[in-house]
């Protein structure tokens, strides 16, 4: 048993892989080895996996119906029956947090998919094309960057109408500019590199250079940045929820839950504190993960 384990390891770490697949898997395993040495990053990963599991199995995990109101039991402190207490309508806070993880994941996941992709595209095209294309795209980016993100998002939602879909859209639209700046800066350092010149001499088209050669080098720093920004996105989403512009009642969403608990914060602290704690833990987990990913994906990691 142990024998096969070492064999696998040697196979993965081989300096002379024999197939494309072995080379790929080997590279991934190398990255995993570096990542897994970072204990805090592993902690972040575990928390996020738990979050995923929670969201996936919410109907089975939540002890009670998150929407069932029981006014007789409103604002109950944490007890054996309601582990995290109940809110102003007597709903079980634990169940609402569990169901709320779905909303949170939906918001974060969508924004994390949309914003960096827009940013990557705009930034690399601007950096690679240069000239007037660069000027137009970057001035556009500057315009978006000139407004505080949350204010801009609020303006968008106000215009589009409150709701979770529009909140996601607003957050995605307002959070791509930093990615565009980052991608452009990376592209500028890469585009003069000899390996780009070499590919050009093989007759590679501009799109091939952009997608096959420049994107792979930008994507790693984007992933790291996204992981580190996740916390901010969760907080922005919560902020919109808090202002009543995100998820609409009775849908469970952590930001909206804090907002509900605000009125009672002095006498019934758990109503606002429990969802706040959930936001805090998940944001922290994303930050830890981002730090770990940076160790793995940094192109300047060198041969070590």
């Amino acid at each position: 048993m142990n024998q096969t384990a070492t064999n696998w390891r040697d196979w993965l770490l081989s300096d002379a892989p024999e197939t494309r697949r072995q080379a790929k898997l080997g590279a991934i395993y190398q990255g995993w080895r570096i990542f897994s040495r970072n204990r805090l990053a592993m902690l972040g990963l575990v928390i996020l996996i738990l979050l995923l599991v929670t969201a996936a199995f919410a109907p089975w995990l939540s002890p009670q119906n998150p929407y069932a109101q029981n006014l007789a039991n409103r604002l109950m402190p944490p007890s054996a029956e309601h582990w995290l207490g109940t809110d102003s309508l007597g709903r079980d806070i634990l169940s609402r947090i569990i169901w709320g993880s779905r909303t949170t994941l939906f918001i974060v996941g969508t924004v994390a998919l949309v914003a960096p992709v827009i940013g990557l595209f705009v930034g690399t095209v601007a950096g690679f094309a240069g000239g007037w294309v660069d000027n137009i795209l970057m001035r556009l980016t500057d315009i978006f960057l000139a407004f505080p993100k949350l204010i801009l998002a609020v303006a968008f939602v106000a215009a589009l109408g409150p709701g979770i879909g529009n909140a996601v859209l607003a957050l995605a639209i307002t959070s791509w500019p930093p990615y565009a700046r980052l991608a452009r800066a990376e592209t500028l350092t890469i585009r003069k590199a000899d390996f780009i010149a070499a590919a050009r001499l093989q007759g590679a088209s501009r799109w091939r250079l952009l997608i096959g050669h420049i994107w792979p080098l930008c994507i790693s720093s984007m992933i790291v940045r996204v992981a580190l920004d996740m916390a901010g996105i969760i907080l922005s989403a919560a902020g919109l929820g808090f202002l009543g512009l995100g998820a609409q009642p009775p849908l469970a969403e952590w930001g909206a839950m804090i907002s509900d608990g605000r009125t009672y914060i002095l006498d019934f602290w758990w109503v606002a504190a429990m969802p706040g704690l959930a936001i805090f833990i998940v944001s922290l987990a994303f930050n830890l993960l981002g730090d770990g990913l940076r160790d793995v994906l940094d192109p300047k990691r060198g041969s070590e």
Binding site: A193, D194, F195, A197, A198, A199, L201, Q202, H213, P216, L217, P299
Partner: peptide, 15 residues
């Protein structure tokens, strides 16, 4: 075709 000076810069690090 051309061969470049610095073999550390002329190969794509991720390819």
């Amino acid at each position: 075709q051309m061969v470049f000076q610095d073999p550390y810069a002329s190969l794509h690090p991720r390819h």
